[in-house]
Amino acid sequence: MSARLRLQTPPATLEAWVNAFASAEIPVLTETAESLEHMRASEDDMDAHGLGEMIAADPLMTLKVLAHASELPRGRLMADPETVTAALVLMGITPFFRAFGPQPTLEAVLADHEDALLGLSRVMQRAERASRYALGFAAHRADPDAAVIHSAALLHDFAEMLLWVHAPDLALAIANLQDADHALRSAAAQRQVLGIELADLEQALMKRWHLPDLLTRITNDKHASDPQVRCVHLAVRLARHTARGWDDAGVPDDLHEIAELLNLGAEHTLKLLHEFD
């Protein structure tokens, strides 16, 4: 992940998309970059938990750390790190700072494209809300993989984030299509503009970067009957539907399915969701 990328036209195949995105530099939030430099100055006082909490608030920095950790050698019986904190424990604090120097920022990369920065900000805010919902659902269900479910919801739309970074005009074209036709589904708009669906690109990138199997599976909506996948899927869907308020036509169906997942009544479910928010 080293070269700066700015695509104006869509690559011809899914594999070509993967090749382009897999080798491109991934910028992070300015707040993340500044916090890392502050922590670097006192790395001897840092621990994996504190550093991990800071990184886990930034989906793209989370992605970079998990992808890097997946490439590290480990013992035959050592599991793949499925959360940022686990990845940092595997790496060690000093090797982490050595591997991750001063980070490029989203704000600098998209300084010439204000609309793209706004579009990206919306996706990242939605991801943060979805991760909170998913963690809440998992905690309510006493799921032992709650931390991985939180990561999966945070990363669920990372291909859309990367599209805003690496191909802002194409991302804007999709947004404009959907603004003009509210009934147009995201996947249909993506196929029309990109020739692929972002969900397929995301799964292919996760495989290319050897991200943990559990994280890859939980992020895949095609396994929607699995309760862990449903935690993420419904969290992401609710965050999308309520991005501009709770009066979206899709919210009642979301509430019904979340109530079923959590085995709660509708009123109790709504109260819980507002607490998560």
Rank of each mutant, 00 (worst) to 15 (best):
D179H: 03
N176W: 11
T242H: 01
L117G: 14
F100A: 03
L201Y: 12
K64H: 11
R237V: 01
H182K: 14
T242F: 00
A20G: 08
A249Q: 15
E31K: 09
V28M: 08
L72N: 05
S225L: 06
L170D: 11
L170G: 11
R126H: 13
L5E: 08
M1Y: 11
M161E: 13
E257P: 00
E107W: 02
G101H: 08
D112G: 03
E15M: 09
A48T: 08
R191M: 00
K207Y: 00
L118N: 15
Q190S: 03
T105Q: 06
D247T: 15
M54K: 12
M91H: 15
V84L: 08
F100K: 06
L88W: 07
D44W: 00
A235R: 03
D45R: 15
S70N: 07
E260N: 11
D181W: 12
A171P: 10
I55N: 12
A99N: 07
A56N: 06
P104R: 11
D253I: 07
E53G: 03
H256E: 05
L255D: 11
L29T: 13
A152P: 08
H156F: 13
L238S: 10
T83R: 05
K271D: 01
P104F: 07
L255Q: 11
H38L: 13
H268M: 04
I26W: 13
T13C: 14
P102T: 03
L106M: 15
V236D: 11
H241D: 02
T216K: 14
P102E: 05
R217G: 04
K222P: 02
T13K: 15
E197D: 10
M54Q: 09
T85F: 01
E71K: 15
H241G: 00
P95M: 05
H233G: 05
H268N: 09
A147M: 11
L5Q: 07
D115M: 08
M124H: 10
P73T: 04
E267C: 05
L238R: 08
I174R: 14
L170V: 06
A146Y: 14
L170P: 12
T13G: 14
H182C: 09
L66I: 10
D254M: 02
L255M: 10
K207E: 05
T242W: 01
L170E: 10
H156Q: 15
D248A: 13
L201F: 12
L270M: 10
R40V: 00
Q103S: 04
S225E: 11
G75M: 07
M91A: 14
D44E: 01
P102N: 06
R185D: 05
H268S: 09
R244C: 04
G250M: 11
A16I: 03
S151V: 09
M39L: 09
M91W: 15
E107R: 04
D145H: 12
D169N: 15
Q125L: 14
G195I: 00
R217K: 09
Q190K: 04
R217T: 06
V165N: 08
G52K: 04
I93F: 11
H223N: 07
I174F: 10
A12T: 09
R217Y: 06
A86R: 04
H256N: 02
S23G: 06
H233C: 02
G136L: 04
L270V: 07
T30F: 12
W246C: 06
H113W: 06
R4Y: 01
A3I: 00
M78P: 02
Q192W: 01
T105M: 03
Q203F: 02
E260I: 02
L29V: 06
